[in-house]
Design a protein around this nucleic acid. Sequence first.
DNA 1: TTGACAGGAAACCAAAAGGTTTTATTTATA
DNA 2: TATAAATAAAACCTTTTGGTTTCCTGTCAA
Lengths: 113, 113
Amino acid sequence: MLHLDTHQPVFRALADPTRRAILKLLSKAPLRVNDIAEHFEMTRPAVAKHLDILEHAQLIATEKKGRERLNHLTPAPLAQAADWLSFFDHFWDQRLADLKTAVETSYDRDENR
Amino acid sequence: MLHLDTHQPVFRALADPTRRAILKLLSKAPLRVNDIAEHFEMTRPAVAKHLDILEHAQLIATEKKGRERLNHLTPAPLAQAADWLSFFDHFWDQRLADLKTAVETSYDRDENR
DNA sequence: TTGACAGGAAACCAAAAGGTTTTATTTATA
DNA sequence: TATAAATAAAACCTTTTGGTTTCCTGTCAA
């Protein structure tokens, strides 16, 4: 079963620690590229590339005002990542259910002995 | 504030679609490297490298039985990723709260007019 | 005990990622 | 209107990533 992986842009965006830090930064307030770059030990063009990747994942959007461009968070796609992870919540639950069943079964055996 | 990024191994592991697919595979049952490789259009060594990365993130563990080695899921570290994402749940809530406040404030102003 | 099977490991490769510096381009402002 | 500010864009570089092939080692079974 090979379908298009809609999760890829988000997970790819989240793979880099700088990008994760940028998302947290932008959760406080929209910022210009230069403002963001001040928070990191790298040049503005490097930060701009990270912003491109975040924008491609639709985790941020930009608004051009004159010669400035504000980057603001659009965190909706993070729900995709959360959804993917939630599959394993179920797995946890299932493991617990299996364990419970096993325990009860062995208890039944004990009772009938 | 620059601290060690404990999330990095997990997010890095999740960045690749093959690795995400492997995790889902292993959620059904433990498998040998060869079994896993059959599910993908790549060679066994390629899969083995993905397994190395998953193991480094402690998302899987292996058990050696004779000449075979079983890979099984140890999904606990996924909670780290979920935790990180949950920060943005709060952000959502805050946005909603802000919106609610804004609406009520404007409603108050309307009332007093 | 000799194959065959399962996996480990090394060498290699192309492309992508993450960064740099340099050079425009557009927009405010003194 | 000339200059400074903000960013965009291009060229380039190094390291990492994701894959390959080839070979080696250990274990089971005929």
